[in-house]
Amino acid sequence: MKTTKPNLFPIYIIWYREILLYLRNHLKLFTSFFVPILILVFFGTGLKAFLPQNLLHYDFVQFFFPGILSLSCLVMVMSSTISVVWDKEFGFLKEILVAPIERWQIALGKILGATTTAVIEGALILFSAPYFGFPLSWVLYFEVLGIIFLFSYGVGGLGLFFASRISRMESFSILTQLIIAPLVFLSGALFPLNNAPLWMLNIARYNPLAYGIDALHWIFLKPIVSPSELNNLILFPFAKSLLVLIAFDFVISFLALRVFNRYLIK
């Protein structure tokens, strides 16, 4: 009976549970709708009014948008995977752990579920892109969602990697301050890293988030900025970003699954 079931079915069940919980958790659902509106109305309007005649050769809002988009997804995916800590503390995870399924299936289902919620969030935010002056086409739309998927998956893996290792919620704030914050500041989401000093650039080179955000910049800015200008805003060639992103996803899956497996059985 066990062999007739494909191995992927438990992953699907964990994933489905994650999605159902997301849809049922009205607060979380509301936030995922609210953040795009917030970005569009307040942030977009405010920034557009503030920075129209800037000294830069490009519209800074257009540089900012991909960064904000990816950070919203990051928050979404992090909050989903970090819930493992909460699950551990209050026991919801036990019910899944005593079920006759493999640990890696649980971990993978969890990461994929979190990634899916982030992609939904990204898809919603993307609808506001025309407001910021991006010519939104279906090609662009799905290209961006593809990158968001790869990016969120990596972040999800990272989140699970840390969540499996920490045993209480207090550790979580330290985690965000010591690890997530530096990763975000050195990702190029908030300002272009090209003009940053070399030491910062060198650190950013080892930041997996930087590659995902760089790839998004490339996709968004290529149609609207001249090639020489694009070079000033992009750190890495697109192909390299894509490659690093995929490689990171593989490596972090492996590490997260391994740590998840080891730390949950005491």
Partner: peptide, 9 residues
């Protein structure tokens, strides 16, 4: 328990 807070570091 500081140990457990910092364990992931």
């Amino acid at each position: 328990n500081l140990d457990s807070i910092l364990e992931f570091l």
